[in-house]
């Protein structure tokens, strides 16, 4: 019984506590960089697209709102021919970011993306791709992956030996 009264008192005391509410959109909160808002595609430190079109983001996406198609440049580097996110379906869960092996897809603190026309919620690659590295500044997937691409042949990736000379007789 006393605890009930105490609850009443404790709640009543809040009459004199300032409200935590931030009056969006007049006031805006400083959001953390890891906040899960609008999705972007980033570039690697060399300015190339990070996305390798592996489809892992698409398959992990709970509402299946990511669709893309892999293609290759003339040197064998994979990149998406198109990359589409239907934000009218997106639940901003961030699983795509977790699944991304190249840090290409990242969620940003920008979350207010309302539109009067639902069709405008469909973002294509040119809407998603930014000119920076996002949260991870130094990572470059192709410097580590042993795949030969333009400007990097076999054996030039990190932690790789030069290609084996198959025709040598040395042990």
């Amino acid at each position: 019984m006393l605890s009930q009264l105490r609850s009443l008192w404790e709640v009543l005391k809040h009459t004199f506590v300032k409200a935590d509410t931030i009056e969006y959109p007049e006031q805006r909160r400083e959001l953390f960089p890891r906040y899960r808002g609008r999705i972007i595609l980033t570039r690697d430190p060399d300015g190339e697209e990070r996305c390798v079109a592996c489809n892992l983001c698409a398959v992990v996406c709970p509402p299946d709102c990511i669709a893309l198609q892999k293609t290759e440049d003339e040197n064998g580097r994979w990149y998406p021919e198109f990359f589409r996110i239907n934000f009218s379906r997106c639940i901003l869960c961030g699983l795509c970011e977790e699944a991304c092996p190249t840090h290409a897809i990242q969620l940003t603190p920008d979350f207010d993306m309302g539109e009067y026309d639902r069709q405008n919620m469909v973002y294509e690659k040119q809407h998603l791709l930014i000119d920076g590295t996002g949260k991870y500044h130094d990572y470059n997937f192709y410097r580590i992956a042993g795949m030969a691409i333009g400007g990097k042949t076999k054996g030039q990736a990190e932690n790789e030996k030069p290609p084996v000379d198959v025709k040598t007789l040395l042990p």
Binding site: C61, P63, D64, C65, I66, R84, I85, N86, R118, V122
Partner: peptide, 16 residues
């Protein structure tokens, strides 16, 4: 079962 992109593959034509 893991077919992906169901809600985005035709979204460029019509979002519905």
């Amino acid at each position: 079962q893991r077919y992906s992109g169901r809600t985005a593959m035709h979204a460029n034509i019509a979002v519905s």
